[in-house]
């Protein structure tokens, strides 16, 4: 049995009901309007960035599991914090996780195909990946298109991993299977559901 020292864990939401609604509603707006960063400023002191922690505390509980990318996993305080506040199970198998947390700012890889993709009959049985970014400046020549986007929309995030565009194209081609991304950067949250297509305009 794991012994958790209460004093070493940072507190969770100050207002659990309102704070969770804020985290969820921002994520909902972000997924409903892909590629358009939503302003998101949760007040939370956590061993991972506040935006990521707020999404986690809003959506995770004992009914789901989560996976951490290498840099987040290396800091034991992150897993402890998430397990303690949400009751969620931590897994080391990305394909078994309901949620995954990947910190791109620390150089962690984003291997979309490693996560649960859902099944033809239950495409919802897939992993939602919360991705830590430094900012959402649109990349020149990159556009996003799909449900939730009127026409086409400029798109980008940094640091964008090598090969992301082709990885994402594969994720999109598997629709309705695939993973959905909730990308966070300081002060904002951006959604990239599996239904979104990324286009290059050279």
């Amino acid at each position: 049995m794991e012994i958790v020292s209460q004093t070493s864990i940072l507190p969770g939401f100050a207002n659990p009901v309102a704070d969770a609604q804020y985290g969820f509603r921002t994520a909902m707006d972000a997924l409903a309007r892909p590629a358009m960063p939503q302003s998101f400023a949760p007040r939370l002191r956590a061993p991972l960035v506040a935006e990521m922690a707020s999404v986690a505390l809003s959506l995770l509980d004992f009914e789901v599991s989560f996976w951490l990318s290498p840099s987040l996993e290396r800091d034991p305080a992150v897993g402890t914090y998430l397990r303690f506040h949400t009751g969620s199970r931590q897994t080391t198998t990305p394909g078994a996780a309901s949620f995954a947390f990947v910190d791109l700012t620390a150089g962690d890889p984003l291997d979309l195909a490693a996560f649960a993709q859902g099944t033809a009959e239950y495409p919802d049985r897939s992993t939602t990946v919360i991705v830590g970014c430094s900012d959402f400046t649109a990349s020149p020549g990159l556009m996003a298109e799909g449900p939730g986007i009127k026409g086409i929309s400029p798109f980008g995030f940094s640091p964008m991993p090598q090969g992301f565009q082709s990885d994402w194209a594969r994720n999109r081609d598997g629709f309705p299977l695939g993973v959905d991304l909730l990308l966070v950067a300081p002060g904002s949250l951006m959604g990239l559901p599996r239904s979104t297509r990324i286009l290059s305009r050279g």
Binding site: F24, A27, M28, L59, L60, F175, S195
Partner: peptide, 14 residues
């Protein structure tokens, strides 16, 4: 609410 919210996010994505 969390359980329903997770379902809503999936519904929007698909």
């Amino acid at each position: 609410k969390r359980m329903i919210r997770r379902a809503i996010l999936k519904a929007i994505a698909v």
